[in-house]
Amino acid sequence: MRKRQTPSQTVGPYFAYGLTPEQYGYDYKQLVGNDLSAGDVVGERITIRGQVFDGNGDTVRDAVLELWQADSEGRYVHPEDERGSNTGFAGFGRVGTGTSAEHFYEFQTIKPGATGDNQAPHITVILFMRGLLNHVYTRIYFSDEANDADPVLALVDPTRRKTLIAQRTDGPDGVVYHFDIHMQGDLESVFFDV
């Protein structure tokens, strides 16, 4: 007999010392943080930065975001990707929105390569917060890539595709992609059932 999936519950407001302890100043080693590009990782260094907004348009100060991405050659560090990956690149990061004044999140990473299947370069985002009973999945695409032929974006209402595309700026901080997430409203981000 098949077992039923254990139900999801909200991450709640107090995840900081369990999931992101060093970021929030706890004396407990964290599994992973927001810097995916440390060390000898190969690829173009980029920053991804943004905010999460609730249905009132207020910034969410107690969200936690996770990134999962391929390396600069489009390969995942995982047994199911038999192509192997760049040495030293883990492809996973995690950050909370509660430690910057305006509740920005920020990741330092490298720009992923295209993974195959005609998909444009992208990063998966997993988002958790108080008041969200099931984590949601979304994707970050890049404004300076050729996204028109991407089969996933093709599934999305054309008026909503822009919610998945991070906007590039080149400035004194290097390459920064801005990517906000809106939970509700006219600008609501596309979330995937996958």
Binding site: V32, D54, G55, N56, D58, V60, W68, A70, Y76, V77, H78, E80, D81, A90, G91, F92, T115, G116, D117, Q119, H122, T124, M129, R130, G131, L132, L133, V136, Y137, V152, L155, V156, M183, Q184, G185, E188, S189, V190, F191, F192, D193, V194
Partner: peptide, 21 residues
């Protein structure tokens, strides 16, 4: 104020989803 208001978009699984940390 935090639950997505619009239906989720069904996404076929690819290598990006079948892998993970």
């Amino acid at each position: 104020l935090r639950a997505p208001g619009k239906p989720l978009v069904v996404l076929p699984q690819s290598l990006s989803e079948r892998t993970g940390p």
